[in-house]
């Protein structure tokens, strides 16, 4: 193996002076397949990295893979070039990272959504069900028709977790509430299909639903649009989406991927980065419901009081989620 690496290095020096031999000192951010500007999950990572760039003046590199094989390739490539920190966004990096990280013990990796126990990996996942529980409560309290909706992107376990928390939260307010659940599709295009998201939302509204929570990335923008047209409510996801349609977006279940990316880059630059496996829930400010000037008028004091109470109880362990 050593021999083949030598030959590869020699080859790369001979031809073109390929970039493979150049070193980099910038942290590298690798997105999920959904792409950088999805107004949701990946974009949250991007905004965290931008915050790091603006506040510290340091630069970073980023890369959008087009297929599964490129995930492993990108991890290896940036690790080999000596990147001090490689951040991998999304659950799909679980297996590639388990394979690549041990090969590069000197490189630090931060994985978002994955769950990895290795000495040079920091993995952070989120209690999406806790945040979804709270927005489920808000949905149930706001609903006048007694039926609310959930629209998931691709039908994968992670998204079912969003739906489960939402359902449990809504039932805690109104045990008889009717919950309609739809998934957009079975391929990754499901994350990027606002037209279909809008269609599903309209059909749910037509059947009496008056609040819809979408956990579907950019597809959710279609849900928000449909809610605006039907003068009903939508709940945003991952990033704070309240500003997209003030008066229509009831609240957003924010998942602070940006904070993880920002903190991890900062820690790497001042040398305090540490490996470990963390789960961020309500207690760690990893997830939350968003209230700002765009939706303050929609959330009454009574609603806030009940949600804050539930939040306290979840943090204290008095409410357990997921059965």
């Amino acid at each position: 193996m050593k021999k083949s690496i030598l030959i590869a290095a020699a080859l790369s020096l001979m031809t073109w002076g390929s970039g493979a031999a150049l070193a980099t000192s910038e942290p590298v951010l690798i997105y999920d397949l959904g792409g950088k500007f999805d107004k949701s999950f990946n974009e949250a990572a991007y905004s965290g990295a931008e915050r790091y760039r603006i506040e510290t003046g340091n630069t970073y590199k980023d890369f959008e893979p087009t297929n599964e094989a490129q995930m492993e390739q990108a991890l290896k490539r940036f690790a080999r070039k000596g990147a001090p920190l490689v951040l991998a966004i999304g659950i799909a990096y679980q297996t590639p990272l388990e394979k690549v990280a041990p090969e590069f013990p000197d490189v630090h990796f931060t994985a978002v959504d994955a769950n990895i126990n290795l000495p040079n990996v920091q993995s952070v996942s989120f209690r999406e069900d806790e945040g979804s529980y709270l927005v489920g409560m808000i949905a149930a309290m706001k609903s006048e028709s007694g039926s609310i909706g959930f629209i998931g992107g691709m039908d994968i376990p992670l998204i079912r977790k969003f739906g489960a928390g939402y359902t449990q939260g809504a039932r805690s307010v109104n045990p008889d509430i009717k919950i309609m659940e739809n998934f957009v599709g079975a391929t990754p295009t499901a994350w990027n299909d606002p037209i279909r998201g809008g269609e599903l939302a309209r059909s749910q509204f037509a059947r009496g639903v008056d609040v819809i929570y979408s956990a579907a990335g950019p597809t959710g923008l279609g849900v928000i649009q449909a809610a605006k047209e039907a003068q009903q409510y939508a709940i945003g996801v991952d990033s704070n989406q309240n500003h997209i349609a003030p008066g229509t977006v009831l609240t957003s279940m924010v998942k602070r991927v940006d904070v993880v990316v920002y903190e991890s880059m900062l820690a790497a630059s001042d040398g305090t980065w540490a490996p470990g496996n963390a789960v961020r829930g309500l207690a760690e400010d990893g997830v939350d419901y968003a209230v700002d000037e765009h939706n303050a008028a929609l959330i009454t004091d009574e609603m806030t009081a009940r949600v804050e109470e539930a939040k306290r109880m979840i943090i204290a362990g008095e409410i357990t989620l997921g059965e």
């Binding site: 679980q94 691709m154 039908d155 994968i156 376990p157 992670l158 977790k161 079975a186 391929t187």
Partner: peptide
């Protein structure tokens, strides 16, 4: 193609899913 994609997704969320994994593999 769409039926196949839906079938694969069903298998990887259900019967063929890696035990304990959150990702579809």
């Amino acid at each position: 193609n769409f039926i196949a994609a839906a079938f694969l997704s069903y298998l990887l969320v259900g019967p063929l899913r890696r035990a304990g994994a959150q990702s579809t593999e």
